[in-house]
């Protein structure tokens, strides 16, 4: 655990912008590391019960309740997704993708109570049996401070090429 998070602040608005930005960045890097290393259980535990994990298709302003998305999971489907990866028979991830992702352009958009809205860009390098794939996305997050640590409430992964055909996306994006 990040020692700074162990201080358990209860009021995000009371943090200095630099402090808040640092805590947010540390959390995004933590999530990225858990994903890159396929630490499925630890990643799943980041999610709150009212979670939405969303990868839109055909644009960035679609209504996921009406239109198809590449991925649109609530908390229970996140659990199914992770459980499937853990069976060892999720063929598209056996062998697992080799991954390294860079997160940058982190912006704190708004703070409301214990929640903070964040934007960031991500570039993911994937290598698997098919070959090398580069994924670029403009992400939006809503994080919630729970017991002094951030948790994921909402994550929208805006693949820049989501209106075009994309290869299988079976790692944790």
């Amino acid at each position: 655990m990040d020692p700074m998070l162990a201080e358990k602040p209860v009021d995000l608005a009371a943090l200095s912008p630099v402090d808040l930005h640092h805590r947010v960045a540390q959390f995004l890097y933590l999530e990225a590391r858990l994903q890159d290393t396929h630490a499925y259980d630890a990643w799943e535990q980041l999610w709150e019960d009212d979670a939405i994990y969303w990868v839109p298709a055909n644009g960035h302003d679609t209504d996921p309740e009406r239109q198809m998305s590449i991925l649109y999971d609530n908390r229970s489907r996140i659990k199914v997704r992770v459980e499937q990866l853990k069976t060892g028979r999720r063929h598209t991830q056996t062998p697992r993708s080799e991954l390294a992702r860079l997160i940058s352009n982190i912006e704190v958009v708004a703070v409301e109570g214990a929640e903070v809205s964040v934007r960031a860009n991500v570039l993911i390098y994937e290598d698997n049996l098919r070959g090398e794939t580069l994924w670029a996305a403009r992400n939006e997050y809503r994080l919630r401070l729970v017991d002094g640590a951030f948790r994921l409430v909402r994550k929208k992964i805006g693949l820049v090429n989501n209106a075009r055909p994309v290869f299988t996306l079976s790692f944790l994006v």
Partner: peptide, 26 residues
């Protein structure tokens, strides 16, 4: 609504079913 939810879970690039079929195709 249920048809859309099931479809999004099952198929497409991140589908719980089709990503494995597609792995087989490749």
């Amino acid at each position: 609504r249920r048809l859309r939810q099931q479809t999004m879970g099952s198929v497409g690039p991140a589908g719980l079913l089709l990503a494995d079929d597609t792995e087989m195709y490749e």
